[in-house]
Design a protein around this nucleic acid. Structure first.
Length: 285
DNA sequence: AAAGGTGGCCGTCACATGTT
DNA sequence: AACATGTGACGGCCACCTTT
């Protein structure tokens, strides 16, 4: 294995983003490819039997000369053009990336003794299980294996039928509440039904729930239809934001783990280089 | 105890990106 | 092209900690 560090690298020739590093102590040059603005994690790959290629990912510095307005605009553009987490994770989980990464992992696996439970090992990096699954395949389930919709409120009802009651005897109904008193409750098929809650004179503490599903198409209910659509959109977006944050957290964890592994590797390689240098000096002397 | 700082989580908006 | 979904940014809320 070879080690490149700014202090130890020898001559560095740069052309078209690829640098060739000549190490005094090594017989073969090393190609260093620098990728700007890329979120693809660095991959160490072998370009040939005699040349090591190391792809270095770095973030380009923010342009200091920008005015406040254009700086904000540019920053926003940069952020908005960043590939989605799903894209990044898909790339990471693609067979090509994995095979490249596995190459790398062969030399580093033994260093990861403290992997937490429930993680999988790709490239010597401990990833949270499920981190690389495509969107929509991750489900949070209850003990019965039933998917749980996290964004919904939980409404506990008494006098419920046994089939829907929880262990405590109460029914758990998950709902989203609209500002106009409407409730949106997903049924077993996943579609959301709108309900209007009206208080009943005879039942001061109770509620009467009436479906408003197909009746919404009448002209006077167009605004209601619009607000229902809005509520549905908000509900979905709420869920999406939650999921997105969860994915982002996973992604950050992955990156942190990767940093730890690469730091380890770097340390090992530096020591290896030192040893080789010493050996080389002894032979020379 | 009150005030202030900090970090985490959430809902919403706006816009980018993906899907049909 | 239209619609659905994903995500950065923002502001609000809450819990916790530190300072006064």
């Amino acid at each position: 294995m070879t080690e490149v560090s700014s202090s130890q690298a020898g001559d560095l020739e740069t052309s078209s983003g690829i640098s060739v590093v000549h190490m005094p102590s090594l017989s073969q040059p090393i190609q260093v490819q620098s990728v700007i603005h890329s979120n693809t994690p660095s991959v160490i790959q072998t370009a040939g039997p005699n040349v090591q290629t190391i792809q270095v990912v770095r973030v380009a510095p923010v342009d200091e000369d920008l005015s406040d307005d254009s700086e904000n605009k540019k920053r926003r553009e940069m952020l908005s053009r960043r590939p989605s987490y799903r894209k990044i994770l898909n790339e990471l989980s693609s067979p090509v990336a994995v095979s490249k990464i596995e190459e790398e992992s062969n030399s580093s696996q033994s260093q990861d003794g403290d992997s937490p439970e429930g993680t999988s090992n790709l490239s010597g990096v401990q990833y949270q299980q499920g981190s690389f699954l495509p969107a929509g395949t991750i489900q949070i389930s209850n003990s019965d294996g039933v998917a749980v919709s996290q964004g919904l409120q939980t409404l506990t009802m008494t006098n419920a039928s046994p089939s829907t009651t929880s262990a405590t005897g109460a029914t758990i109904v998950q709902y989203a509440q609209g500002p106009d008193g409407q409730f949106f409750i997903p049924d077993m098929s996943g579609t959301v039904q709108a309900y209007q809650i009206a208080t009943s004179g005879a039942l001061p503490q109770g509620v009467v729930m009436a479906t408003t599903g197909s009746a919404m198409s009448s002209p006077q209910n167009l605004s209601e239809e619009a607000s229902r659509k809005r509520e549905l959109r908000l509900l979905k977006n709420r869920e999406a934001a939650r999921e997105c944050r969860r994915k982002k957290k996973d992604y950050v964890k992955c990156l942190e783990n990767r940093v730890a592994v690469l730091e380890n590797q770097n340390k090992t390689l530096i020591e290896e280089l030192k040893a080789l240098k010493e050996l080389y000096c002894q032979k020379e002397g």
